[in-house]
Each structure stands twice: as structure tokens, then as C-alpha cells.
Simulated assay, not measured.
Amino acid sequence: MRERSSMRIIGKLLRLILLILNILICCGLIISGYSSRINPSLHSVWSISHLFFPFLLLGTVAFLVFWLFVIRKFFIISLLAIVLCANPIYTYIPFHLSNPKAPVGSIKFLTFNTEGFNNYQYKKNGDPNEVLVYLQESDADIICLQECIFQGKLTKDVVEKAMKKYKYRAYYDFGAHNGLGIFSRFKILSIEPVHYKSANNCSIAYTLDIKGDTILLINNHFESNKLSSKDKQVYKDMVLNPKSKTVESGAKLLINKLAKASALRALQADSVAKFITESKIKNKIVCGDFNDSPLSYVHRRIVGKGLIDAFVNSGNGIGVSYNKSGMYVRIDHILVSKGFKTYQCTVDRSAKCSDHYPVWCYIKKKNASD
């Protein structure tokens, strides 16, 4: 009898511990899902909680299934958290049953962090650069590049010769290891930097004449997380071996670095948002390497200026665009004014020539009937 009584007590205690853990995970999911409303300049550590969103979502779903088979009434806790986070979940993992083809008159738009054109390397002497080959074969009408750097064998003349079908192009160097570039079939009317403090990052605003309409296009490379190869290995070890003794120290190191970078990006996003607000041009496209997820303050701050996320609007899945060191997140974005419709937004995983995948979509101006 005593053994049975002890087992019942242990069982109740275990269920209580699991219930508390479930509640904590659900609370974490809600906080991370709406962390974009936390200004990193004021609360930098809390603002990066969105990075834990996929793990918290998996934990919430796991508990939902667990309680359905153990104590059914408790599954409502996870279900309620999922319902409350329906919008963040859809933003993070959009899903569209139908994905119509782009209509006639659409333009193909592509953004790509080239990792310095694959670190300026050729596989063999004389071989074509893989990034250039991809850009040539993409047949995009407008291409925005980040980490567009001419160095070594990959000179400006080599790039321009390869991209000769694009009549309009512009480059902007900032720092030894970064630069922005644009190749366009449409006339570039003006070029203007968006001013903010940064040693190696920048945003450039172009005005383009696209089929008679003046469009504001802003190409961005926001502050990176400044994680060294060693830091990325620490993260990978934490994911692969969460029981390691180094998890606590590694987590503190990474959170501190991520929080500082997040605060810097917030100020940069504020500057871009202000530039968008002050522009008299109605139709806008904002793209580039945000170094932040779709649930971040940076993303919300810019989308909040009357824009829509092309991938959320016409893509499917998580859409991982950064692909190295086990840090698989969507940090490259295309945002457009509500006067545009987007089609078939794709993170092109076939291009393995950079630490980022290119992101492209078709864009068409809405008709009066849309």
C-alpha cells in the first residue's frame, strides 16, 4: 500500500512539474512571438527572444500532443498559446494552398547576400564565379546585392562584363568587407544613402523608373550579429549537445553579443523607417540582409510603414535564408508597398554559392480592380 501511495505521489508531482513547464514554455512562446514590440534600444535582451520562437513552438506542440494522450483537459493550455500566437506563427511559417503564377507584366526581383561573391574565389583557375553564373541565369529584372565587393580576380570589369545585359548598375562601398550593388533593366533616376552610424553597414535608396512609374527602392545590410567562427561553433555545440557543461557560459556569451547587435539594428531600422515616412514616392520596395528574423523589431518597424512581406504574402514554409554554422533562419527579406502584388516568393536553396540563399519574387502593380 505504501509503495502504491508513494507511486501516486510521485506521479502527481511529475504531472505538476510537467504542467508548470508547459505553462512556462507557452508564456515564452507568447513573449517571443510578440517580441517585435520590444524596442532593443531599451530592452535588448528581451527583444531577441524571437530567436527562440521555433523551439518554443515545437515544445508547445509537443505538450499539446502529450496531454491529449495523458490528461486531455490540460491540452487547452498549449492550444490557447497557439491560438494567441496565430499571427506570429503565420508570419514565421506562412502557408498557401495555391501559388498562382505571375501574370504578364510582372517584374522579377532578386536580393542576394553574395558573401563577397563567394569570398572572391574560383573553384579552379579560369572557372566562372558561381555567384555570377547564378545571377546571369536568374533573369531577374532588378538585382540587389549585399556584400558586393570587388577583390582579387573578381574585379569590377569582370563583374560588369558578366552582367552586361543590365544597362543600369550602381555600387556603394562602405568598409573593407562590405558593399551594396544593384543591377537593373530599369533606369536609375537617383541614388541616396540613408544616414545612420555604422562602420560596416549601410542602406541605399534608389529611385527607379519602372514602366513609367517612379519607385523608391531601399537596399539594406543591417548590423550583423558579429559572431566569430568560435561563437558559431559554441552555438552549434549547444544545439547538438544541450547537456554540455558549456551551455550556460555559451548562452551568456551569445545572448550578450546578439543583444548588442540587436540594439544597433534597431537604430538603423528607425532611420530607414523615417526615410520611408518622409519620402513622397507612393510605391516602395525595401529589401536586403536585415540580419533579423520576421518576428524582430527591425522587421516590424519597417513593415509598419505600409509594407507587406513578400514571403509571408506569397511564400511557403520557414524559408531559411542563412545556411551556415547551424544558424538556420530567414534574415533576408523583400518588402513591398500595398500597391503591389507579389507572386511565388522563393528562398532559392539551389544556390549554394554563399552563406545566404538568394530570395526572389515576382512583383506587379495592382490594378484598380485588385
Results as ranks from 00 to 15, higher is better:
147 E>S: 06
247 V>G: 02
295 L>K: 11
369 S>D: 05
294 P>S: 03
37 R>D: 04
172 Y>L: 14
202 C>P: 00
155 T>Y: 05
287 C>F: 09
152 G>H: 15
221 H>G: 03
4 R>T: 07
355 D>F: 15
13 L>A: 14
40 P>Y: 00
342 T>C: 12
109 F>C: 06
69 F>V: 10
55 F>T: 01
214 T>P: 05
296 S>R: 00
57 L>M: 03
118 N>T: 04
196 Y>Q: 04
366 K>H: 00
40 P>A: 03
301 R>C: 08
171 Y>D: 03
226 K>F: 04
366 K>E: 01
269 A>T: 00
318 I>Q: 01
44 S>A: 02
15 R>H: 15
88 P>E: 02
89 I>F: 08
278 E>F: 06
112 F>P: 09
307 L>H: 13
264 L>G: 00
202 C>D: 12
291 N>P: 01
360 W>C: 12
161 K>S: 15
15 R>K: 13
35 S>T: 11
282 K>V: 13
86 A>F: 12
205 A>H: 11
238 M>T: 14
307 L>W: 11
287 C>D: 12
250 G>E: 06
33 G>E: 04
124 K>C: 06
131 V>D: 10
340 F>C: 03
277 T>Y: 10
85 C>V: 06
146 Q>H: 12
335 L>N: 11
115 E>H: 09
360 W>R: 13
73 K>M: 07
325 S>K: 13
103 P>H: 02
189 L>T: 03
96 H>N: 15
263 A>H: 00
264 L>A: 04
356 H>T: 10
59 G>C: 09
127 D>I: 11
155 T>P: 04
60 T>C: 14
189 L>K: 14
196 Y>W: 04
39 N>W: 00
262 S>P: 01
74 F>A: 07
337 S>P: 06
289 D>P: 12
367 N>Y: 05
42 L>E: 00
169 R>D: 05
344 Q>A: 04
67 W>I: 11
299 H>P: 01
192 E>W: 06
242 P>W: 12
77 I>T: 08
35 S>V: 11
369 S>T: 02
40 P>H: 00
355 D>V: 14
202 C>E: 12
350 S>A: 15
347 V>P: 05
7 M>G: 07
299 H>D: 04
34 Y>H: 10
303 V>K: 15
123 K>W: 13
195 H>Q: 12
287 C>W: 11
285 I>C: 07
193 P>Y: 08
59 G>M: 13
289 D>K: 14
200 N>D: 10
94 P>D: 12
64 L>S: 10
152 G>L: 14
280 K>Q: 05
